[in-house]
């Protein structure tokens, strides 16, 4: 949008990413940890879209000019698809763990500890 500095979007993206990182570190519920990962993915999406819109960095991309201009948006689409697949499998794993052990606390899942 005109008159809005790029830094506003970037700052929000950075803030959301940081919040996601902190959340992954301090939460113990794997579902919430998943949500924090989604938060980080969305922060990255926002950053991609912001750069795609402002085209602030001129990167010499070989090939189609139009295609290189759309690169940011394409990336966002792929991230969304990956997030969807990740959530489907990840929540399935959480439910499977819950069925096996009746417990989902992330700090007590230490079967693989040597």
């Amino acid at each position: 949008m005109n008159g809005v500095p790029l830094a506003v979007y970037l700052g929000l993206g950075l803030f959301m990413f940081t919040a996601g990182v902190v959340g992954v570190m301090i939460r113990r519920n794997p579902i919430v940890i998943f949500m924090c990962i989604e938060l980080m993915l969305n922060a990255v999406n926002l950053t991609f879209l912001t750069f795609a819109r402002y085209q602030a960095v001129k990167m010499p991309i070989p090939g189609d000019q139009q295609a290189s201009m759309m690169a940011g948006q394409m990336m966002v689409i792929f991230v969304m698809a990956v997030a969807a697949a990740e959530v489907a499998v990840g929540l399935g794993i959480i439910m499977a763990i819950f069925r096996l052990r009746d417990n989902i606390d992330i700090d007590e899942l230490n079967l693989l500890r040597g």
Partner: peptide, 29 residues
């Protein structure tokens, strides 16, 4: 953030996010 100080005008085309532009790019390049 200081590296992007003063950048406040979008350079991309206004309809770069419409369904036509995205569809064309997604299914070609």
């Amino acid at each position: 953030l200081p590296a992007f100080n003063g950048v406040s005008t979008p350079q991309a085309l206004d309809d770069f996010g419409g369904p036509h532009a995205i569809g064309r790019t997604l299914f070609s390049a």
